[in-house]
């Protein structure tokens, strides 16, 4: 494989900003930086583990039932993550809610399993999954940071904008997610010279 198996997911093929995949958690749980971080890391773990396993089993899984098999593998790791988060912090588990279970249907994970892990060796699949997962976490943090900063005047729970800041309630509500994502996409396309 080429040298950028790992690094392409970080920026050039970033899942959030370039592939625009897995928008459900991107829009729904990025209301604070902490939630974004937790969601990103949970997805990263599931992505790496399932890609590794899919790559290991790629010669055993019959072509006709591969999607069902991938989903089964992914669901196993999502269940594990679900219990682990519940054990670490019930509060965080409540904040992320159903979106932890919904990692199962996150199209990035299935997409990497189908498009990459099932066709490449274990080491390459791990590198690819790690890059994509970190890129996804980075994307979530970009949204979560901006939304928490405007929506609560804080960053990772620290009140960086002082006690007199008037929070923009809108930014922690669903529309804030759409506005922030649109803003980031515009800025990135602007930087690439593809938008005016």
């Amino acid at each position: 494989m080429t040298a950028d198996t790992f690094s392409k997911g970080l920026w050039r093929e970033n899942p959030v900003f370039v592939q625009v995949l897995g928008m459900c958690p991107v829009l729904a749980v990025t209301n604070t930086a902490i939630n974004s971080m937790a969601m990103g890391l949970a997805t990263l773990f599931v992505l790496v583990m399932s890609s590794t396993l899919v790559s290991l089993l790629r010669h055993l899984i019959p072509k006709q039932v591969r999607i069902a098999s991938f989903i089964l593998i992914i669901a196993t790791f999502v269940t594990a993550v679900d219990y682990v988060i519940q054990a670490i912090s019930v509060e965080l588990h409540k904040a992320l809610g159903a979106f932890i279970s919904l990692i199962v249907v996150n199209c990035i994970i299935l997409g990497r399993a189908e498009a990459f892990a099932s066709k490449n060796g274990v080491l390459d699949a791990m590198k690819d999954a790690l890059g994509m997962g970190l890129g996804f976490t980075f994307g979530l943090l970009c949204l979560g940071g901006v939304r928490e900063l405007f929506g609560s005047g804080s960053l990772f729970g620290w009140h960086v904008l002082g006690p007199h800041f008037e929070p923009w309630v809108l930014m922690v509500l669903p529309p804030g997610g759409f506005f922030t994502l649109a803003g980031w996409l515009w800025l990135i396309e602007l930087r690439k010279g593809r938008a005016t």
Partner: peptide, 10 residues
Amino acid sequence: AFLQAAFPAA
């Protein structure tokens, strides 16, 4: 609508 959703108190 933006202001109403962002600053409901004011």
